[in-house]
Structure formats: C-alpha cells, structure tokens
Design a protein around this nucleic acid. Structure first.
Lengths: 300, 300
DNA sequence: CCTGTTATGCTCCATATGAGCATTAATAGG
DNA sequence: CCTATTAATGCTCATATGGAGCATAACAGG
C-alpha cells in the first residue's frame, strides 16, 4: 500500500443475471458460457445504473432487482495476461414474456450437486464424496486430515436433513481446492459440473449463496415472478432457487402470516385439479416491515 | 459499456477498523477523521491479505476478522478531482492490549442518533424529527410527501420498540437527502453528528449496519473480545454495537443454549459485587453449525 | 357417479422467545 | 459480625414460531 503504482487497474463488471422458467433457474451467458461482462463505464452515475443500461443493450430483458455481490481481485484472476478487478452483480429478471433462448443456461448444469429437490443427487455419494475422501487422505499430516474431514462433513453431510443449501460457495471452493472442478486447472482427474471460463463459476456460486440466503428474509422471489401467480408457482420458484422441497401447507402459512401477497380475485383455469387463486405481491410490505427484525433479546 | 475507455480507474481501499473498549465502539481514523485508506496494491494475493499487511504497517493492532463491505463508485465520488473507486472493508480488532489512543474515534460521536442504550437519544425528538418534518413538508407534491413520511416513520419510529437498529445506512441516507449532515454539502442548515471527509461516514454507516446484522447470526462479537471474558462483558459489547439494552437472563440463555462459550474455570476478582465466571469462545461452533440454518419450511 | 389431482383449512406438538420473580455469592463499610 | 450494594444465577409462564400430518373442497375426465 505504500507504492504509488496507481496508474489504474482495469475494472470490469460481471453480472449474474437470473431468470426462472418452468421450475428451473437460468443464467444469462455468452456462447462460451461466460457471464456477460463489460468494462467499467464512467458515464453512469452509479454502477447499478450502468449495469441496467448495459443489460438493456445486451438484450437481456429489463432488469428488475439488482444488487452488488462482491469485488473479486485475487492475484490469479487474470484476463488476457494482466490482473483484473471485477465487480460482480446479481440481477433478477421478471418472468420473461418470450421463452428463454439458447443464451440462458440452467444453473444446476454447472452445480449438479446443489439440486436436492428430488432427494440428494446421486453424484454426491457416487462420485463427489469418494473423491473428497481420497483428497483428504492424501493430506500430509493428521491434523490437516481432521480439518478437511470436518469441512467435508459440513459441506456434504451424510444426513440429508443436515444439508445447508446456503453453503454453495464453501462447497465450490472445497471442490476447487480438491481439484475436482475443471477450473482448478492442474489436471483435474474428475471434474464435476459444467465448467465456465475464468472464475465465473465462482462468481455464480457467490450469487447462488447470496440469493438462497436472501429469499429467507427479504421478498426477492417476487422479482422473478410475473405479476400474478399461484401460491404453488411461488413455492416452486423458491424451491427451484433453494434446491429443496418445502412443506406446502407451512409454506403457505408463512407467506400469508407475513402478509406478502394478496388475492387478485382471479383463479387459474383449464389445468387439471382444483383451480388455484391468483395472488400478487403486496408491495407495501417493503415499507411496512423494512426488515424482519431482531434475534437479540431486547428489553422493553 | 461499449466504449473501450478502460485505461484504468484508480482503486483505493478504505477500512473501517473497529475496536470496543469500555462499552464504547471506536473507529481507527487519521487526524482529520478520515478512514485509513491506501491505493490498491497488486503485490498481494488477495485484497484481504493486502489489507492485513497494510494495517500492520499502519500500526493498527493485528486485524482479527476481515470482511469486504462494498465497492463504492458513484460518479460524484471524487478524490482530488478524478472519479475514484473504493473497496470498503470491515475489520475487527481484538481487545487491545494498550488503551486506544487519540487516533480512535468513538463511533457514536459520528452517529449520536444510533445509541439507544439509555433510551431514545434526545436529539431525535428535539432536532432530527422536526428537521425531517420540515424537509418532508417542503416536498412539491402530496405523493412525495407521503413516501417521505413513510421513510421517516420507518427510520425513526415514534414507538421505541419499533426501532430497528440495523437501518443505520437508511437513516444516514435519509439525513443526507434532507441535507441534515454536513457531507451533503449544499449549505446544510442543521448538521447532526461529527462529519467525516469524503463519503467516509457513509462507509462507516454501511459497516455499522453490516456488523449489527451479522452479530445476530454469526459469532463475530468474539472477534472484539479478549480471550477470556465474563458474560456481562460479552453482553455489554453486543449492546455497544447494537446500541440497545438487552434482557440479561434471556441473553445468557441464548448464549448458553447455542453453545457459544465454555467456562475457563477462573473467575473475576477485585471488582465490587459477586465475582463472575470467566468464559472463552468455543471455536468449534464455527464448524459445528456452519450457520444457524433455515427459515424455510423444509420437508423431511 | 367415481377417480385422480391440486388447493386449502386446521390440529397438535416441540421449541424458541419475551418478561419477570426470586435467590445466591461476593465486596465495602461500619 | 451485620448490612447495603452489586452482580450472577435459577426458574416460571404465557405467547410465538416452526415441523408434520390429517381432512376437505373443487375441478377435469371418463
């Protein structure tokens, strides 16, 4: 920090642009599966506005929710030889009018171990755990093995009920260190999930983790839904993001007791089964409860 | 984003370095109350490591916990004329051996409206609310006034039990927009709290909000305490950060049931009153519960 | 009418949280 | 030794909140 080598570092923006269609979350990518990115443009007042304008140009639907994720600047993060700094953004696209095209990639293709909606994915017991075992056992000393074993146990617990869907980034980093993802470079033996260029899969992991954490305390799911939706549609979307099945009745109780939605009066028609009421998001809650609230045992 | 004007933008790091002494949180600042900052140095593997090395040089105690806060890059953020990008960090310093010197500033001097440990601070009813009222009433149209009133009501609720200690940033931004902090520039009539140069007070507000949110679901308080502490000391530290009084018995119950601490066997001596047992942080919980857990009604 | 399917209502229980009341263990000062 | 003071601790109780599951209701199609 004492050097004056501040000619300037190239800054780029990377956006994880998410849409959900038919119970599947998708990422907007370029042809080579890279995240859309561009140079930092100083013409906009804020980074976020710049991102929105740029996404419009790139042909993504208009971005709804936008949030800064993280600034990535490890030394080994080099694009075209020079070290680069990237500011990652997460953006959510409302239910797209036209079906998603070929430039949208289902995110579980890149993270097959993260989708637990139909039970623990087979790849975990069949391939990931054995490979991690082997990696752990290759550690030089016992204490290290101990620590690795702990990490593995937390990231990929045996008991399905222990699965913590938020640990997306920890899991990806664990697989990286064990050289079980192609991006780790050094001649990975096994490679799980569809790789992405540069550190983009890491950025996506960060985005998934953030999103999975956020849906629990902020009504962001609605940024991925059309204006009107059924409660089942809402639940399916949350499940798609979390990669988990939820208890239907309790999910509804939660949604209603929090006053997140209101009936529009209309119902679905034509489908099989009892028609469902249509709901819309109560924008007011954004103001009413600027946030859930406390976990501290306050006085008064 | 289509231009190739990427000669590079100067990047600087700003660190909000926090320590707690005697029930008071302090910030490390320079003589003119600026946050310690320095150019982005590419010699380190990660930004975090760079920050640690640099803090050591600057004479801050060794940093314990470090976390990236946010990247600030609004157009009006200019240092010495040119637009600059700043990566903000939050760092926590363990109980300092020597007393904190003059380069540490109590954070409530900059945010007097945030300390509710002795009840709602007088400044809110006496000065802030009237000034915000006036600002709201000066809005051109009724809908705008309506919205401002909502914002004010959430940021500074009348009922003390509605006070949400996490909204530090929202409150600061509200005061900024109402030109009630000196940094807003345009000839602020009133100015609340001790100002800081540039947008540094905004960065601190971001840090406070993050910290207040984080202590609820991650055991970060221990990063601000000595190895051994009493439960009262622990509670006082949390209260200092949150700016709130907590219910003693329930606080203890919470801490114990979460298995955060373990007795060291020793007790305090010399003080008045019954001696308290000394505790230490159970590092294991970091692994055991890599995180609190769910808010979603899972199945299974 | 009978069956399959999905939407909705409700109950029950375990645990967490919010508020207090009551005791106990030390120290300081007479 | 006795007493006031200062904290630490132990417990209780009512009320939320979260997890599971049973029971009904409303429609499509044969």
């Amino acid at each position: 920090m004492t050097s004056t080598e501040s000619r300037g570092t190239p800054i780029e923006l990377n956006a994880v642009i998410v849409a959900v269609e038919n119970c599947t979350p998708y990422l907007l990518t370029t042809d080579d599966l890279a995240l859309p990115s561009g140079p930092f443009e100083s013409g906009h007042r804020t980074l976020e506005q710049g991102l929105r304008a740029w996404a419009r140009l790139k042909g993504a639907q208009t971005l709804g929710y936008v949030e800064q994720l993280y600034t990535f600047a490890d030394r080994d993060r080099t694009t075209a030889g020079t070290r680069s700094v990237s500011i990652g953004y997460l953006a959510l696209v409302h239910d797209p009018a036209q079906p998603l095209g070929h430039d949208w990639s289902p995110w579980y293709r890149h993270f097959p171990w993260e989708d637990h909606r139909d039970g623990t994915p087979a790849i975990i017991a069949a391939q990931i755990l054995p490979a991690l075992e082997a990696w752990k056992n290759a550690a030089p000393d016992a204490p290290t093995r101990e620590i690795q074993a702990e990490r593995i146990g937390i990231a990929f617990p045996r008991d399905p009920r222990q699965w913590n869907e938020e640990l997306v980034l920890q899991r990806y980093e664990l697989l990286w260190q064990a050289e079980l993802v192609a991006e780790a470079g050094t001649g990975a033996r096994d490679s799980f999930g569809l790789a992405m260029p540069f550190d983009h899969r890491r950025i996506v992991a960060t985005a998934m983790a953030r999103l999975r954490a956020k849906i629990k305390y902020r009504p962001v799911v609605f940024e991925l839904l059309p204006r009107e939706f059924t409660l089942l549609h809402l639940q399916n979307t949350v499940e798609a993001l979390a990669g988990l099945r939820l208890h239907k009745q309790n999910f509804r109780r939660l949604v209603e007791q929090q006053g997140l939605v209101e009936e529009t009066g209309a119902t679905t028609r034509g489908a099989s089964g009892r028609p469902a009421k249509l709901f819309s998001f109560r924008r007011k809650v954004l103001q009413e409860r600027a946030m859930a609230g406390t976990k501290l045992p306050r006085t008064g």
